Computed example of a mutant assay.
Amino acid sequence: MKRPLPMPPNHVDPLLAGASLGLVVIGAVVVGSASISLADRDIGEPLYYLLRHLGAVGIGCAGAFIVAAVPTDVWYRLNGFVLLACVVLLVLVLVPGLGQTVNGSARWLGLGPVRFQASEPARLLLLTYVASYAVRHQADLLTSFWGFLKPMFIVALVCALLLAEPDFGAAVVVTLTSLGILFVAGARLRDFVLALIIAASAFGALAVNSAYRLERLTAFLNPWSDPFASGFQLTQSLIAIGRGEWFGVGLGEGVQKLFYLPEAHTDFVFAVLTEELGFVGASFVVLLFAFIVYRAMAMGQQAIREGMEFQGLLSTGIGLMLGIQALINIGVNTGLLPTKGLTLPLVSYGRSSTVVTLVALGMLMRVHRELSAVQQVTAKRRPKQ
């Protein structure tokens, strides 16, 4: 692996930073609008969720600055510790007394007054490990099915721990992101397709064999058949999206968030956003996500061409993770996918997700700085025409 050369300390990607800032600002505005009535009714403090969301943004920005100052080679060399931390987090959340159950899922760890969702940092840690594995064992990955299968065993272990919580959506994101990293790293197409078929079959069997997941699946296929029970969330989301039309009903003027739409400030914040800002506002948010994913993937390819394989795969993995999660959340809100319980990164209220997403973007900023430094040196070494 080629190590990055020294770089200017303030070299950042202004377009990536601008798109990220745009989502943070939109998220704060929409979380405030979606949660104000709920917070006033349940807690007596209208700005309760907004202030906590802004606190998470502050912590996440601090984490992003710290991570952006750490050479990516550190994460590469600490790959064993990274994997251990991922597994330990997911095991601890299942330990009685340590893990905390919310809405029937044991996804939370409490450290004194601080509570966080363990699967969020675990996902980032796992993709970092998979990227390092693909670089360290590239020869095996290119030539043998066993080289492809070994990291997938680890991914399967992580998915089993996630499903034990249960967190089906996170398991899907982890699997697809890991497969994407290995494919970009050069895994053979037949190995990739076979693993994809096995993963799809396994998740399909889990969905059919669980009464809870099967109910969600059937509700997604025809929510109007039972609009006041199993299809309630989706029908209310579709009503909100339909009311938005082209330009929305106006910021703060949405109706569905007023105790009609469950989880209005978390899982279904995109529906609230569309109702109040319309198709134009929703499309702008989608474009911001698309640009971040494109920028991360393009940066990944540039890094790989410069011999920075780990940085390239890390950037690719972060882009895939954010893109897949955003796609699933928007798909759920619009009725294209069954409910998964995933937040919309940087936009939904979800402090663990917000902090980890900003830290991941800090990693992207670091990759950009290191890539720029290498490209500058490469340009200087080119013979003048």
Rank of each mutant, 00 (worst) to 15 (best):
M1N: 04
M1S: 05
K2H: 07
P6Y: 08
M7H: 13
V12G: 00
L16R: 01
G27S: 06
V31N: 05
D40R: 11
R41C: 00
D42C: 00
G44M: 07
P46Q: 07
P46H: 08
Y48C: 01
Y48F: 15
Y48N: 11
L51Y: 13
I59P: 01
A62W: 09
I66Q: 01
I66T: 13
P71V: 10
V74H: 10
L78P: 00
L83E: 09
L84Y: 08
V88I: 15
L94Y: 08
V95L: 14
N103P: 01
G104S: 10
G104C: 09
R107K: 14
R107Q: 13
G112Q: 11
Q117I: 06
P121F: 03
A122I: 12
A122G: 06
R123W: 02
L127M: 15
S132A: 15
V135E: 12
R136V: 04
D140E: 15
L142V: 06
L142Q: 14
S144Y: 06
L149H: 04
P151E: 10
A156I: 10
A156V: 12
L161T: 11
L161N: 07
L162W: 09
L163E: 11
P166W: 11
D167H: 10
F168L: 14
V173S: 08
S178R: 05
L179I: 15
L179P: 06
D191R: 01
D191W: 14
F192P: 01
F192E: 06
I197T: 14
I197Q: 05
A200P: 03
F203L: 14
A205L: 15
L206I: 14
L206D: 07
N209R: 12
S210W: 11
A211R: 13
R213H: 08
R213E: 09
L217G: 02
L217C: 03
A229R: 09
S230E: 13
G231N: 04
F232G: 00
Q233Y: 04
L234H: 02
T235F: 01
Q236G: 00
Q236P: 00
G242W: 05
G242P: 01
R243G: 00
E245Q: 12
W246K: 03
F247G: 00
V249A: 02
G250D: 06
E253M: 06
G254Y: 08
K257P: 03
F259I: 02
A264G: 02
T266Y: 04
F268I: 06
V269D: 05
V272I: 15
L277A: 10
L277M: 14
G278D: 08
G281Y: 10
F284L: 15
L287V: 14
L287A: 15
F289T: 06
F291R: 02
E306C: 09
M308A: 05
E309P: 00
G312Y: 08
L314C: 05
I318K: 01
L320V: 02
L320T: 02
L320K: 02
I324Q: 03
I324N: 02
A326L: 05
G331M: 07
N333L: 01
L337Y: 09
P345Q: 11
S348Y: 11
Y349A: 12
R351F: 00
R351S: 14
T354H: 00
V355W: 01
V356Y: 08
V356H: 06
T357V: 13
A360F: 10
L361E: 03
M363Q: 12
L364H: 07
R369C: 07
R369K: 13
A373F: 10
Q375K: 15
V377G: 00
R381G: 07
P383T: 10
